[in-house]
Structure formats: structure tokens, C-alpha cells
Amino acid sequence: MLRKKSIIDTGSLSLEDIDLIFANADSFLEVSERDVKKVPALRGKTIVNLFFEPSTRTRTSFEIAAKRLSADIINFSSSTSSVKKGESVIDTLKTILSMKVDLIVMRHSDSGAVKMAEQFVNVPVINAGDGKHQHPTQALLDLYTIKKIFNKLEGLKVAIIGDFINSRVAKSDIDLFERMGIDVTVVSPAMLLPEDFSRMKVKHSIDDVIEESDIIYVLRMQFERQNRKFYPSIMEYNRFLSLNKDRLLRMKPGSIVMHPGPVNRGIEITDEVMDISGEPGERITIEQQVTNGVAIRMAVLYLILS
């Protein structure tokens, strides 16, 4: 049993919770390898994927996880709902609750929206990403992926590279990584780094960390809105922060590259790296992250609902 029924942020997960989730993920990973990838664990349960912000990957991952556990899952996203017409989050929740669902997986572009929803409803809620706040299941699958590859966590060196102002993934990852004794360095230009992060190990160029890190965790870099004004250009990003082939080849033996997906090719990771074959290509664990993501979400759904 998890300490809490809902998962809003990584901070509310105890170390025992995480161990339990990982242990269950191990067995669900095995289910995913089977010919018939289905167990009857959550038969008769109804889960809602409530997405107020577009997402394909995370939504699909939860959907597959629920289906493999034999739960019924309903996708309710803003593009198909009445939210666009101005219906409030609360009204939407009311409608959904009246359908007698057992669990809500929710994403919203506003930080705190999922917490608000959790306080309003009487069923468990899983945060699938809220604004710039948290994305706890992503952090769990990231940590799980690292653990599966390295067989340990403590003492590993991870460098997280990119935009920390707009990234909820980074905040969730940093919290879990630090609690597990992973040595975290944040690599970011000043304008994409919250001033509060000065408490951490900070570097400004990927070249400062590429050779010594066990894990290069590349964040999405979106050149839109305020970034355009404050961060000069893709060319400047490529020079100081992108993962290119030369840098990939300089990584130490056994080290890996992670990314929460989807990759902006040519920005944070070059095409050359994305399409590289052979041994250097094996360092890129993006696909493993996706596979592990389903197992982690199965574990979380199972532990909450069973």
C-alpha cells in the first residue's frame, strides 16, 4: 500500500513507496514481455485520463498501463471536451465524478491545478503533469530506468541539461535523484535557471559535464514565447548546450543519455545523435524510458486501486 492514495508530487512519495512501486514495476515489466500482455488485476475499475493540456505520450502510457491491468479507461482531453467553451475545471470534475470513476489521471497547464482537483474529489488523483510544477510518474520512470541500467543509484553522477524555468520534469527528477544519493549537476544558461537553483551544482555548458557524467539527462528546449526574447538562438544553444555527435562520443564508457520526450531534433539533441547506430546509439535510453514508463504506471495504478 502506498502511504497516500493520490500522487501529486514526488515529495509525497516515501522511500518505501518508491521501493514498492519499483518492485511491482519489475513484475509488470515481465507482463509487458508476454504474448498476452494482460492481467486481471483491476477488472471492473474505471480510470479517467483527464488531460487539459495536449499530450500523446503520457496519456497513451497511462492508457496502455490501465488496459494491461484490465481496467476501463476513458480519455477526456480538452480538445474533445467542453473545457474549451469555458467550462471550469471544477465543473468538468463534477461531471466526471457523477460517472462514478475510481481514479483520475490529470494533466493541466496550470501549476497546482491537480492539487486543487484532488482536494475537490473523493477518488485518488495522479498528477500527469501540472504547469511548471511536477510530473511525478516521469521522475519515477526515470529513476527506475537508471536503477535498471546501473543496478545502483547512490553515487551516480547525473547532469540535467536545459530549461529549468519551464520544466516540471526537472523539478520532479531533481527531488527524487537527490533523495536517492545521486549527484546532480544542473547545466543551463543563466536565463533558463531559477535563481533558487544557485544552491545546486551549476554549470553553463554541456562540455563541462559531458565526460564525467554517468547520465546526461537532456530536457526539452522550446523556443517559444519568453525564451525567444531571453535566450538568443538555436545556434547559441547548439554551441553550448545541445547533445551532438562529438559530445556523445566523448561520454565515458557505460554512461547513458535520457530525455523525457518528445525530442526537438536539431535543438537539444542533433539529428545525427538521434539516428546514430552501433554502440554510441545504445547509450540513448529514450525507448527504454518509454517501456519502463508503462510498467511504472501499471505499478502505480495497481498499488492505488487494488
Binding site: M191, R228, K229, F230, Y231, P232, M235, E236, R239, F240
Partner: peptide, 9 residues
């Protein structure tokens, strides 16, 4: 005074 230049480059 609108967009920062490529100071590093």
C-alpha cells in the same frame, strides 16, 4: 532592446 544577442558566440 527586444531580443538578447548570441553573447556566447
Amino acid at each position: 532592446g527586444i531580443n538578447i544577442t548570441e553573447i556566447g558566440l
